[in-house]
Design a protein around this nucleic acid. Sequence first.
DNA 1: GCGTAAATGACAACATGCTGGCATAAGTAA
DNA 2: TTACTTATGCCAGCATGTTGTCATTTACGC
Lengths: 145, 145
Amino acid sequence: MHSPKRVLFLDLVLSLFRLNGLLIAEGDAMTEKLGLTHARWKVIGAIALSSSGLTVPGIARVLGQSRQAVQRITDVMLEDGLVHYVPNPKHKRSMLVTLSDEGKDIYNQLREVQDPWAIETTEDIPIEELESGLRLVRRLIKKFN
Amino acid sequence: MHSPKRVLFLDLVLSLFRLNGLLIAEGDAMTEKLGLTHARWKVIGAIALSSSGLTVPGIARVLGQSRQAVQRITDVMLEDGLVHYVPNPKHKRSMLVTLSDEGKDIYNQLREVQDPWAIETTEDIPIEELESGLRLVRRLIKKFN
DNA sequence: GCGTAAATGACAACATGCTGGCATAAGTAA
DNA sequence: TTACTTATGCCAGCATGTTGTCATTTACGC
């Protein structure tokens, strides 16, 4: 069966891998002066975008990574004073990871470069295209969860 | 400035990170019996999808990775007999990476599970959505290149 | 409640990816 | 051609990510 969708989808997947790498490079370039690595700004971003608190496995799920990888990063970020572990009313052992004052400060500095970047990048892209793109991505995420 | 596009775009980026991780997990699950890792099937897929040959830096560009990372993987794949390095008429040192017979055989086995997966995954997604999604991804790639 | 399955933290071994540096090859402009 | 810039292979050091394992906690079906 020669499904045209098949080739199209595989092309999309390969392009997503490439875009993923480019986005990480963009973020690293942006945060170079802040002393952040992509492992760190991803965690900071995930925490900042979540309304309620996030546990380590929760961050891992949002980022599509293993909980062990996130645990190691947050442990180091705790030592560096970027995050706090606060008690989780819903779980005795699994603490909530929150940004410390220093972490929030760095997040604000991050936004000072990230916001213009986001606006500039999407300048010539209609909001409808971004919305339909996000819908497609979420649809795929749901399939693989 | 409270650009709605900004939040939308950042949400998209975070979702792309997550989808990237899920896609790798999907691929790893599919290729488990073939003895492939994601580093390897990405390289095999990139070579197979390219009409003309690819050099190591070329593969790296397609995958959005560093050339050194790809070089290490292809070197091991050469030892394992999955690829050949063939002379590149356009460059004295930079060889073209091609699939060996064994590599092609594994790629065919890969397609036996990948094709149904791709078709099944896109079953309920209109081709127009896939096309517009791919256009958006390519547009973003071009911006960051 | 009870018992089992799932989730979580902790640790270790290993695979993968990146940066930096250096030498050589290729491309480019004068 | 020459000089300069870029691309490439190779190496080393380090950061990141995954898998596997075990003990403990939580969730869930009965």
